[in-house]
Design a protein around this nucleic acid. Structure first.
Length: 874
RNA sequence: GGGGUUUUAGCUCAGUUGGCUAGAGCGCACGAUUCACAUUCGUGAGGUCACAGGUUCAAGCCCUGUAAGCCCCACCA
């Protein structure tokens, strides 16, 4: 095959991915079944487990949607790790996933139904479930194709969908265990309820926003007086069961224990004391509505108060006087206010700013609603998780997140796992409907959720209509993706690393840790790497409403998959929300093209030399030793950066080495002396080293090169190159000389100086021996031995006797620049001398630093001498 | 209210145990040119490291405080 003059990703990427996939190289090589090769009855995988495997699972993208830029970062990060460890020889398993995304998908589907003029209430739960299933099935596939386009080297036959049978099975097993352990309870609690979506939300799914509101003062009367309470929700007064005042509040001391008449009703309610009442706020007296307010619920618990529900799930009034019955909360508020005013009980109103909870999908105000729900008692789970975290069993990147997650777990409230939507895993609980069977428990666990009714021992039960909170099932992710079981040892569990967004640290990571420990007794992963949000180029959050959303697929199409991966990893570090810049993707694209052309050049040299394939090379000149040293340094940096999850730094090191060192110095030098075997080895080394980040272009090159075999994706991580360190260091002198020649020529008056002036050397074997090379790198027309007295312009930085053969007239024009240079070196010298004159520095600083300073002083002094010689030559 | 985090060149970011004469990419300026690559090569100009104190021989880095931004959690009847 031939190398075109530029790399066109579109021509290679899909074919390459298809070839990888067809060859099965992304499947892990170690079976998940027990192996006992030596017949000692012990599973042989146990001893070598951690050093031989690498496992990572994909946070499942929504099966129903397209990938966004955050997924792009996720894949770039996770796949780089996977490919790196695969090259390092580990049996690597990257398990892909798809999320049924319970609520997200439900919202989309319900909108779809509305468009068709239907509502969910026309169908049974089971009908809805199968309808959404088909809906998602139609959409699925998009997301998987996009993951392939990003180069994700995952094991597709292991793709796990969150509604797969084994997932449901595992979730039921856990639930059953929790039920038997008494960790599951049915409780009447206030939940965040969205009246539009008719479902409860976890606290974490609710968004709080500041809003303008009104605080009304209402008079609650008693015989011979009244107490004024302040409220933002007058319509809930029908649910009031008490008025609370602060025990320290002197104003109301006398009223404690009295009863007052609840306005617009005949009911009498007591005046109680509770810390919750803030004397500073409003009138200091607060109405207590346990069924419709979170704080009041707690006050009610403390004082054992009744909970009166006055708002139904559809957002309409119930359990209220006839005149208000069936009104919406808004209508009811109006009427209550009007009626209070008519009865002269409304004593004032004040505009305030307060924080209101909203549904994160539709923006509807969340109604705290009293509901029977399934809860997980999290106390023990959280406690165990904290113990293991404090025991440093999981390493976090960034480190500080460990503290944050422990802090969260310490204050964790019981977990409401019921959701009132059909799209999800059915809760496997059945309620007794046979009242005569009084000895039987009210609720029983049963896996047969495909049935609406079951019969056990002659008693009939009906299935709970609710489904699980998605986090309940996804907290099993490391367990279900690796097919962990109670019976067999699994070499892929715990995962080596969990990679995900820092924004779901609480919702997901914390729950996976609790669940992993509960189910398997082990932490589910050894390390956690959290990435931040990808912000737009101005550092703002991407959102549809702002119109600043960037589609990763557009970038892949425009610049190639590798360019996207290199670009998105650049300038990014763990846990931080950082801006995205298309420029970085452009730089990535350019690097791919550079790699392509480097390979093209090397292939042409190899062809020309008809190099017979031999494994070893010998270095023959300084540049060759030098590049081996630089490549070794680069490998070391990449290895360390990968261990520390410093992807941006690893990419940076490779970029600098490939471009600045390999292409601009080494390959240029190879235009004089060519070492085909070394070129082959060094190219392979660099291609493999950057393969984790740029899989497609490196594979495309690998397949085009005449001497390589197999896939680069499954090649071996390179060993360090052998070289002569003294020779390598000598090449630095050449670099210094070349750089100075270039700089000086650019600084001289006139243009095209490189072609005008020759370089003269005096008794210098380094320059004499490397004339060709220096000429090629500097472009000077000739390099000659100096004859007679020194002339022209002496090069001062390089510690060699070198002169540019420049006419006196030109040097004269350069004089000012030279004088300025002498002054600036003089200033640096002064600073160094000042440091040495400080006795504390000489006494206290480490000896090697003091010596370094002394050496620098000597160097500067010599440099000034040489610069002065330049002046004298004029 | 609690917690976290950021502030370094025009822009986006490195700077890991204090040794810095503060780096990179992009952008900018100047120069080169067809023999791997204009998705190129060479050279250069850009910085009171947010601010104020402190510790130290030495502070971008450590400590105290201030300011501005961002994120998360809790919550205001």
């Amino acid at each position: 095959m031939k190398f075109a003059s530029s790399y066109e990703p579109g021509e290679y990427e899909s074919d390459i991915y298809a070839a990888w996939e067809a060859s099965g190289i992304f499947s892990p090589k170690i079976s998940s079944l027990p192996i006992d090769d030596n017949g000692d009855g012990v599973d042989d995988r146990i001893c070598t487990k951690s050093s031989q495997t690498f496992s990572i699972v994909m946070p499942p993208p929504n099966a129903n949607g397209n990938l966004h830029i955050g997924h792009g970062l996720t894949v770039a990060t996770e796949d780089s790790l996977t490919r790196y460890y695969r090259l390092r020889g580990r049996s690597s398993w990257y398990v892909p996933g798809a999320d049924h995304a319970g609520f997200e998908t439900w919202v989309v589907y319900e909108r779809e139904l509305e468009k068709q003029g239907h509502t969910r209430f026309e169908y049974s739960r089971d009908e809805l479930y199968s309808r959404v299933w088909s809906f998602v099935a139609e959409q699925r596939g998009n997301m998987e194709l996009q993951l392939r386009a990003l180069g994700a080297s995952c094991s597709w036959e292991d793709l796990t969908f969150t509604l797969d049978e084994n997932v449901i099975d595992r979730v039921y097993t856990t639930f059953e265990k929790m039920w038997n352990d008494g960790l599951i309870y049915r409780g009447e609690k206030l939940v965040n309820f969205c009246p539009k979506h008719q479902t409860a939300f976890a606290d974490i799914e609710v968004e709080h926003e500041d809003e303008k509101g009104t605080l009304w003062d209402i008079a609650y009367t008693y015989d011979g007086g009244e107490i004024i309470v302040s409220t933002t929700r007058p319509e809930t007064l029908f649910g009031d069961v008490a008025v609370a005042v602060n025990p320290e509040d002197k104003r109301y001391k006398k009223l404690i224990g009295k009863t007052v008449k609840l306005p617009l009703t005949d009911r009498e309610i007591p005046i109680i004391t509770d810390e919750h009442a803030d004397p500073e706020y409003g009138t200091g007296a607060v109405k207590i509505t346990p069924a419709h307010d979170f704080d009041d619920f707690e006050v009610g618990e403390r004082h054992n108060l009744e909970r009166i529900r006055v708002i139904a799930e559809d957002g309409k009034m119930v359990n209220v006087p006839e005149a208000y019955y069936g009104l919406t909360t808004t209508e009811c508020r109006k009427k209550v206010l009007k009626d209070l005013k008519d009865q002269d009980l409304l004593r004032g109103e004040k505009k305030i700013e307060h924080n209101v909870a909203h549904c994160y999908k539709c923006g509807t105000t969340i109604e705290p609603m009293l509901k029977e729900q399934w809860f997980v008692d999290v106390e023990k789970l959280a406690k165990t998780a904290i113990e293991h975290l404090e025991n440093d069993e999981i390493r976090f990147y960034p480190e500080n997140k460990k503290k944050v997650i422990i802090n969260y777990l310490k204050g964790l409230k019981d977990w409401n796992i019921s959701r009132q939507i059909p799209w999800g895993i059915a809760i496997p609980m059945f309620k007794k409907i046979d009242d005569r069977a009084t000895d039987e428990p009210e609720w029983i666990f049963d896996r047969r959720t495909n049935l609406r009714e079951i019969e056990k021992a002659g008693v009939k039960y009906v299935r709970d209509e609710d489904t699980f909170d998605t986090w309940f099932s996804s907290s099993h992710w490391p367990i279900v993706c690796t097919n962990w079981t109670e019976e067999n040892f699994n070499p892929y569990y715990p995962l080596n690393v969990m990679e995900t967004g820092a924004d779901i640290l609480f919702a997901w990571v914390a729950r996976m840790i609790m669940m992993g420990l509960y189910v398997t007794g082990e932490v589910p992963f050894r390390e956690v790497y959290l990435h931040g949000l990808v912000l737009d180029e101005h550092g703002k959050k991407m959102s549809k409403s702002k119109g600043n959303v960037i589609n990763p697929m557009d970038l892949v199409t425009k610049y190639g998959s590798d360019a996207f991966r290199l670009g998105i990893l650049r300038g990014r570090s763990a846990g931080l929300n950082q801006a995205f810049s298309e420029n970085s993707v452009v730089a990535g694209r350019n690097l791919c093209n550079k790699l392509w052309n480097i390979s093209r050049l090397i292939q042409s040299i190899v062809d020309e030399k008809e190099s017979t394939s031999s494994e070893s090379y010998t270095t023959e000149n300084m540049g060759e030793d030098w590049i081996c040293r630089e490549i070794n340094n680069c490998l070391e940096m990449v290895e360390k950066d990968m261990k520390d999850y410093r992807f941006a730094e690893a990419v940076e090191a490779l970029y600098q080495t490939i471009w600045d060192k390999y292409a601009d110095w080494f390959l240029e030098s190879q235009k004089i002396y060519q070492n085909a075997e070394l070129l082959k080895t060094t190219l392979e080394t660099l291609l493999i080293a950057i393969h984790p980040f740029a899989p497609f272009v490196t594979e495309a090159i690998w397949q085009n090169l005449s001497w390589t075999e197999g896939f680069i994706a499954t090649s071996k991580w390179p060993v360090k190159l052998k070289y002569d360190p003294i020779s390598a260091e000598e090449f630095e002198n050449i670099r210094i000389i070349v750089s100075e020649v270039r700089t000086t020529l650019q600084g001289l008056p006139g243009t095209n100086n490189a072609k005008k002036y020759n370089l003269l050397y005096d008794k210098d074997s380094l320059v004499e021996d490397n004339q060709l090379l220096i000429r090629a790198l500097t472009k000077v027309p000739a390099i000659n031995a100096l004859e007679g007295a020194p002339r022209g312009l002496r090069l001062a930085l390089a510690n060699h006797e070198l002169y540019l053969d420049v006419p006196a007239k030109v040097v004269e024009e350069y004089k000012d620049a030279l004088t300025e240079k002498i002054l600036s070196v003089g200033r640096e010298l002064d600073a160094l001398n000042l440091r040495m004159m400080n006795p504390n520095y000489v006494d206290k600083a480490p000896a090697h630093l003091v010596k370094e300073t002394r050496d620098q002083i000597t160097e500067k002094e010599q440099l000034i001498d040489r610069l002065k010689q330049q002046l004298e030559l004029i």
